[in-house]
């Protein structure tokens, strides 16, 4: 039996579910290309954020070699979709999402924060800003 795949860490899921080609072949029994979430994340880190494979692999908590393999897969799938004019679907893959947990001292309650780009974080229950981030998972 093959060794189970390590889970890859993702910042956010893609903002769209996929892409479809424009033109003649649109939706005519075209088998969509399935791009896994980990492959999407590899593309995002390497080609969009322009980080090198080592930095990117640390972010996804996998080894450098694994990252390069995932990235190569992603490039190939993307190229196939472009050349053959096939739709792209983002789906599945051995991933987990990076959610940051915070603790509100006023309520008190724990909550996670999804808008990672937002700087000011307020408690969703009492709107107080008296919060700390918890590094370890207590629950």
């Amino acid at each position: 039996m093959a060794r189970p795949k390590k889970l890859r860490k993702l910042k956010n899921p893609p903002i769209v579910k996929g892409f479809s080609p424009i033109g003649k072949a649109t939706g005519k029994g075209q088998e969509p290309i399935l791009i896994n979430y980990d492959e999407y994340e590899a593309l995002r880190l390497a080609d969009y954020n322009m980080s090198n494979h080592l930095q990117a692999s640390v972010k996804m908590q996998i080894s450098r070699a694994t990252f390069t393999r995932i990235y190569a897969h992603a490039r190939r799938k993307l190229a196939t979709a472009l050349v053959e004019g096939r739709p792209i679907l983002f789906q599945g893959g051995p991933v987990y999402f990076d959610s940051q947990w915070h603790y509100c001292r006023q309520c008190p309650c724990y909550f996670n924060h999804l808008e990672k780009d937002e700087k000011t974080i307020a408690c969703p229950l009492c709107l107080s800003t008296d919060i700390t981030s918890c590094k370890e998972k207590i629950f």
Binding site: Y96, F97, C107, C109, F111, L114, P124, L125, F139
Partner: peptide
């Protein structure tokens, strides 16, 4: 009061915020 590991991952991907009151 509590969310399991599977549930947390699912809600993360659906962009739903989870809140756990301590009381």
């Amino acid at each position: 009061g509590e969310f399991g590991n599977k549930v947390k991952a699912l809600f993360d991907s659906l962009k739903v915020q989870l809140i756990i009151p301590e009381n």
